[in-house]
Design a protein around this nucleic acid. Structure first.
Lengths: 232, 232
DNA sequence: AAGATAAGGTGTAATTGTTACACTAAGTAA
DNA sequence: TTACTTAGTGTAACAATTACACCTTATCTT
């Protein structure tokens, strides 16, 4: 048995797609590689899973080591297992993604020297990436785009208090199309997952908008949406 | 580099959830294990990925070797990577699922002797399974259930020609709830993905129903459905 | 052949959700 | 005070969803 298993050993890695929103622009987290192969190329934060850690845990550790970001909840979305996706041998990778809030640009600082730096790249300017990371990114972005179409998950990207216009802009950026202001507000408010605050925007040179908070409890109801044929 | 990689080697496997419909009953394909650990337990068809094959290809090979079913298109749905999910060491597994048509009960015959038999098990009678396969099955079933709620994918399970009642029954079995006959038909026909045939059911001891075929070309339109806020 | 049985097949009205569309209100800046 | 910029709001037309019940057609039984 032991011998049989040895024959099939593979390398197993994690790659992370982390979305952030900065000044209305959607960005993802990249690193600059500091090792061969693809030395000095940009890549998704990713590395090899250890024997004694679950893949979910590995994802968190790896993201931390490469970017300094800690405790980010990520969700696995696809596993890439083509034979030649990595030039140094067989490497299968599980891709994770997450959306995070950038409170005043959290500092990014690689802990290991496997990456020479970590930085936010606007998704509209994505450069060529190492390995098959462009393909991984595209699949991850599609996933987010289709997920947001069914569930209002975009709040993770916004500051705790936000205006409806900011929320709408975010949807427009992710879905890459313009939305009708009145219809957007009507529908979003009808979900009853936003708490209207007694506060207004500050520091803007025009009429200040009301601020809202996301209501996580009420959101729970939402997690279900199905085709139906009557008789619920 | 070579040395670094070696330290992290893991075993990598595939497990398959194959749904079939037999006499109106939803079943999945299981094997009886013929090796330790869990010898003589029931399990999902699964085995180890080889170094020189993609995971999609491995899924097909493994399913064939354990059950004799060839060329089944499966879709990956989740990767399970808990540290202790396999008693003999670290094994990460990618789970795939598929729905197939049982034309007069295809013969099942394991090609390797890793399985002593392969058979169809009604999902409502699922026994305890080896390893964490019960968890994998539950997640796969959830996935199918939520997918069918957005896309009419269930045709894969039915014979080429089927009646609307058969289709409705299938939906009811998967979604585990009763649907309204008139609304179901109205909505299903409105998708315009069914071809009405000039034939009727045969061999039934009551009024025979019209037969329909699934129209794969028209189905393509369907693959998109999104939340929207006006201004398409 | 008459009647019983079993599933097939059909329509409508009420309700809800979606879409398209344009002006006034409020605050800031000059 | 005026100009500017974004906030904020309602309605009518249309489409989709829901709830709901009876007649039709074929087979089987006697």
């Amino acid at each position: 048995m032991e011998k049989l298993l040895q024959n099939f050993d593979s390398i197993f890695s994690i790659d992370c797609i982390i979305f952030g929103l900065n000044e209305g622009e959607l960005k993802i987290l990249l690193i600059e590689r500091n090792e061969e192969p693809y030395k000095s190329w940009y890549a998704l934060p990713g590395n090899i899973v250890k024997q004694n850690e679950s893949i979910d845990h590995a994802a968190q550790r790896i993201l931390y080591e490469l970017t300094g970001l800690k405790g980010i909840y990520m969700e696995q979305f696809h596993t890439f297992g083509e034979v030649n996706r990595h030039p140094s041998g067989r490497v299968i990778t599980v891709a994770y993604n997450a959306m995070i809030r950038l409170d005043g640009e959290k500092e990014l600082k690689p802990i290991t020297n496997y990456a020479s730096k970590a930085f936010w790249m606007p998704v509209k300017d994505m450069p060529a990436l190492a390995f098959d990371h462009t393909e991984i990114f595209n699949k991850g972005f599609d996933k987010i785009r289709s997920k947001i179409s069914f569930e209002p998950i975009a709040f993770e990207l916004l500051p705790e208090k936000f205006t409806l216009t900011q929320l709408q802009n975010l949807y427009e950026v992710i879905l890459n199309k313009e939305l009708d202001k009145r219809n957007f507000r009507k529908k979003m408010l009808s979900y009853d997952i936003l708490k209207e605050l007694d506060e207004k925007q500050e520091g803007v040179s025009y009429r200040a908008a009301k601020l809202y908070k996301f209501d996580r409890r009420k959101y729970a109801k939402f997690f279900q949406k199905e085709l139906s044929f009557g008789k619920d």
